[in-house]
């Protein structure tokens, strides 16, 4: 149940970043957040890089959710 709630929250936060609802987040989307979040551009870029597991420049919901899970200490795998 906790996992379910966390996934739901991750989904919600994902759509905050993915304004155009493309289904993925780019670095450009991330940079747009710097107006709203108290993070520096290079911090946002570092966050993006650490969430973008396969490093293809597109942050998927799965990658985002997994990152959110590790922030919460929840493992969604398995």
């Amino acid at each position: 149940e906790v996992q379910q709630m966390a996934k739901q929250k991750a989904h919600e936060l994902f759509s905050v970043c993915d304004i155009e609802q493309k289904g993925f987040i780019t670095k450009r989307d991330m940079q747009r957040l710097q107006n709203e979040l108290p993070l520096l551009p290079d911090q946002l870029e570092a966050v993006f890089d650490s969430l973008d597991d396969d490093g293809n420049g597109y942050l998927t919901l799965e990658e985002f959710t997994e990152g959110f899970g590790s922030y919460l200490g929840i493992n969604f795998m398995g």
């Binding site: 919600e12 936060l13 570092a46 966050v47 650490s50």
Partner: peptide, 29 residues
């Protein structure tokens, strides 16, 4: 996992914290 830079966990926490604060929906629809 490999490639996780030191300190990135704190940064992630910072990021998600800010995002959660920015989006304080919380309640059930």
């Amino acid at each position: 996992k490999p490639g996780t830079a030191p300190g990135s966990e704190g940064m992630l926490a910072n990021f998600f914290n800010s995002l959660l604060n920015k989006n304080p929906k919380g309640g059930t629809p």
